[in-house]
């Protein structure tokens, strides 16, 4: 697993491009996927350190993908990035092991700072 590799899963091309651009400018490498199904495949194949995950997507939504990733039993960190603000959805993400919830539109500098902070706190980063 590379502690600099981030998977961005969002059906919005605009979000994928903006977030990937900001993270790459900060020294991370990125891969992208357009929905939960593509995201699951990419997560298994690429073994990123973190997934930035939308909630509302075709085929498989972000919360279903999060639960399929079983992050409570892995070193993978997940941050949700969504327009949703419903407390019940946040509670579901927290229960499934997500590290945080970001409400669109997020300031990209703050997003990068949050990614750095969460990755620094991950077990893999500490032991690396």
């Amino acid at each position: 697993m590379s502690s600099r590799k981030i998977l961005i899963v969002d059906d919005s091309e605009t979000i994928r491009q903006r977030v990937a651009g900001a993270l790459e400018a900060a020294g991370f490498s990125t891969i992208t996927a357009r929905d939960g199904v593509e995201g699951l495949v990419a997560a298994q194949k690429e073994r990123p350190a973190m997934v930035i995950l939308d909630v509302n997507m075709p085929r498989m939504n972000g919360l279903d993908m999060l639960e399929s990733l079983d992050v409570r039993n892995s070193e993978l960190a997940v941050l949700l990035l969504t327009t949703e603000v419903q407390p019940s959805l946040m509670a579901r993400a927290k229960k499934a092991g997500a590290k945080g919830w970001m409400v669109k539109p997020v300031n990209l500098e703050q997003l990068v700072a949050t990614v750095r902070k969460v990755i620094a706190q991950a077990p893999a980063a500490v032991s690396a």
Partner: peptide, 12 residues
Amino acid sequence: TSFASEGDIIIF
């Protein structure tokens, strides 16, 4: 008023 709003980042 406990709902999150645009731009909020909540760390669990």
